[in-house]
């Protein structure tokens, strides 16, 4: 483990304090239910677009996909394509229509013209179930990362770290509401995109701006060798695993569109145009928040 844990802790705490301050300030402006749950519907397209990018750049994509590519090569890359195309599902099929109902939650919108209680119960159950599984993965990733930073290796230590991270997150949301967490996501998205760009440029530079060179090096250091450059390392072993992969891809492209934390971002803009604007503020690696629409 390289790096001084004391410095790591200091930087980590500094980040926490800065973002907590931002959240607190944003939270102070919350005075109505609409403010708390939908940021008063006053967020501009580009702001929400950046926040959406922050949502998308979750621990799953940032740590998980990076890790999957590092270990399995091409099969990890395949995973990320699913997330990408799911974006379009939300844009074309959901965005223009979902927004503008004056509601806060997916349950509200779904129960719009139907019997309230059964639909709300179903929406709530699905949200809780999805959020639970999502959270477990995110928390494990975040906790593992923080434990690495702080040089904590015992199981109890790591458990404590994960609990601590969870408590801090709860605190963020309680204090800031939608507006506060949106600003945190904006900061996160900006920082992540900046660092990713820098890392990419420096790495490419180190290998003479040759993608082939990087991949050859990666294959040389991987126990599976150059097999990782082709599909099949993880998902190609048996016919069943291939089918499993197709099923996984379908789940990714259709399911990501239904994630509650993605859907709820639609309620924070004043109209459908901003919703589509905001959705387009996200695509790919560049923030297209100045999209001319």
């Amino acid at each position: 483990m390289t790096g001084n844990p004391l410095i790591n802790t200091a930087v980590f705490v500094a980040f926490l304090l800065v973002t907590l301050f931002v959240v607190y300030r944003a939270g102070n402006r919350n005075s109505t239910t609409v403010d708390y749950y939908a940021a008063g519907r006053g967020l501009s397209g580009p702001q929400n677009g950046l926040a959406m990018a922050g949502d998308y750049l979750s621990a799953a994509s940032f740590l998980g996909i990076a890790g999957a590519i590092a270990i399995n090569g091409y099969d990890g890359f395949l995973y990320s394509i699913g997330f990408l195309v799911a974006w379009l599902v939300n844009l074309l099929l959901v965005g223009e229509l979902l927004r503008n109902t004056g509601r806060f939650t997916m349950g509200d919108v779904l129960s719009f013209r139907m019997r309230q209680r059964p639909v709300r119960a179903a929406a709530a159950t699905s949200t809780l179930a999805i959020s639970f599984f999502y959270m477990v993965a995110q928390m494990a990733g975040a906790g593992g990362l923080v434990a690495l930073l702080l040089n904590v290796h015992t199981r109890w230590g790591q458990a404590l770290v994960i609990i601590g991270v969870g408590l801090v997150m709860i605190f963020y949301v309680l204090v800031g509401g939608m507006r506060g967490t949106t600003f945190v996501q904006i900061i996160k998205a900006a920082l992540l995109m900046l660092t990713i760009t820098l890392i990419t440029v420096f790495l490419l530079g180190k290998f003479g701006f040759s993608i082939s060179a990087i991949m050859e090096q990666a294959a040389a250091h991987n126990p599976k060798g150059t097999a990782i450059l082709s599909p099949g390392v993880e998902y190609g072993k048996t016919d069943l695993s291939k089918l499993d992969f197709v099923s996984l891809s379908l789940a990714l492209v259709l399911g990501v569109a239904g994630l509650p934390h993605i859907l709820m971002r639609f309620y924070t803009v004043p109209n459908a145009r901003e919703a589509a604007d905001r959705w387009c503020g996200r695509p790919g690696r560049c923030p297209f928040s100045t999209w001319p629409r």
Binding site: R41, E96, L97, L98, R99, N100, T101, G102, V109, F112, P270, N271, A272
Partner: peptide, 12 residues
């Protein structure tokens, strides 16, 4: 915001 909300209701 209400006009947007009202129309959007119709749309949705």
């Amino acid at each position: 915001n209400s006009p947007a909300g009202a129309f959007g209701q119709a749309l949705s």
